[in-house]
Every structure is written in structure tokens, then in C-alpha cells.
Amino acid sequence: MKAAFDPVTLATPFFIVAIVLEIVLARLGRARAAYEAKDTAVSLLMGLGSTVAGVLTAGAVFAATLWAHQHRLFDIPMTAAWAWVAIFFLEDLTYYWFHRLSHERRFWWASHVNHHSSQHYNLSTALRQTWTGGVAGTWLLWLPLAFLGFPPAMIAIEKGISLVYQFWIHTETIRRLPAPIEAVFNTPSHHRVHHARNPRYLDKNYAGILIIWDRLFGTFEPERDDEPCRYGIVKNLGDFNVLRAAFHEWIGIGADLLRVRSPREALGYLFGPPGWSPDGSRQTSAMIKARWRARMQEKAAKPAEADPAAASETV
């Protein structure tokens, strides 16, 4: 069930026009954008499938939100300007923690990984949305807003605004925005870092609209001109199969659970960081970062052999 005013539905024609424009500009050599037809197809089909999956779980999500609102602590009027300011910040803070959880714990990563599964970064990548978010239950994180007293329609609209905002930042066409904007808002530059698989950039910049949360909670990483983003996931997918993009991590969890030898292992596979394994034979992003830091330190210790840019690196 959607609010009568749904920012995402309203913005869909704009999404299509913007993608066409980005492709045309890239074709004319006026913009930097890498589009691969099959990759674009997967992104767009993920977007379409996501709206269908969303409709299937929307009833339950709306009922839960309504229930929370019926037990609200305060009466927050949808007509008050202060209420919109408050929900803007609170929804964005909720998004930050939802997004961080979605990267740091495998159960929720399984539903979010598809958004990162493209090796490209363009406006179509923004539409590569989850099919399994409803099942993963991350929508529960927004219930406290209803419990506080924000009307369900207001929460739905603000979530929609956040999703629409995050569309335009999926581009390589815009390099950097003026410093005050880069300081406060999530921008193409900040979100490129979020989509990069370079060890330095892994699990950084979880922001929705405001980058201030990353600065506040220690997950901010600026994009560096001397280290271009390499997009995708640590182990990129082996084909352009949309079902694989949607379900591969869930299948991986299932296969691991069939082999567990103790409840501890089961918990680790389900709720440990992505890449967790009982014997440490796989790599979590913390392990990847630690090895990268060690390499950098090694290079810095042998400046004569290393290239000068890497040797001057501080880690």
C-alpha cells in the first residue's frame, strides 16, 4: 500500500529521461559514463522486480507501521513544518543505520548485495534495487518513527524522497560539487566510494541524503583522484543473470547452513560479517583492509622499490 503521493512513481519518467540523457552524452563524448547493455538490463530488471516484490510485502509493512502508529508516544501533525524537518533528519539517520547493517551483517547483506553487483556505475545502477528487502525485515528499522508519532504516510513519503535523491548521485558524469555541498550532502563522489571494491573504499559512506552521519560515526572516506574507484563486489558475479544477482548470497547462506557443525557456526554464517567463515578461510572486508594496510606499510618501508605515490601513502 503506497501513500497517495508517491515520490518514486512520480519520478520514474524523470529516471528514464535522465538515463537516456546520460547515454546520449556518453555517446557524444560529453560525459563519462560506461554503459554495457546486459549490465543495464540487469539493473533495470532488478528495479522492476523490486517494485513488484515491494507490492507483495507492502500490506504487511503498512499494517505493522499502522499498528506502531496506533501505539504512538506523541501526536505529530503532518501539516507542521517542524515535523518535516524532524523526519528529514530522523529518516536519514535511520537510513544510515539500515545501510550500515546491510553491509556489516551477512543476513541483510544478502538482500542488499544486488545493488552493488554491477561493475559499472551509472544512473541505471541506482535502479538495481533489492527483491528481498521485505523478507529481510529491514523495514522494521523505520517502525520507531511511527511509534514516535510520525504518520505512516509521512514516513512513506520521506523514504520515497530519500530514494529519489539517491538516484542522481549514481553517476561518474559529475566529478565534485562545491565544497560546502560535499561537506554536508551525499554526492556522486561520496557514493562512488561506497560502490567501489578497492580495499580503502570498502564499507564506507553509508549516507542516504546527508553525509554528516558518516563523518559523525567514523565511516566517511573521501574519493581520491590517485585511486580511481573499481566498482562491484569483492567477488564479482560470473554472468548477467538477474536471478543470480537477486539471490546468490541467499543461496550461499543456505549452502553454508547445510554444512554447519555447531549453533555458533550457524550464527556466524547468518549474522557475522559477509565473508565470515569458522576457519577464516574466506575474507571479510576487515581482513581485506588489514592485508591492504600491511601491503601499504611494506611498500612504505621499501620506498626504493615501491612507486613514489604509494610510498608516500599514509595509512
Partner: peptide
Amino acid sequence: LVGFTAWARI
């Protein structure tokens, strides 16, 4: 859109 992307051959 996908047809257009393929045509653009970027």
C-alpha cells in the same frame, strides 16, 4: 532502454 544502450555501443 536496453536496446538504446546496445545501439549506443559505449
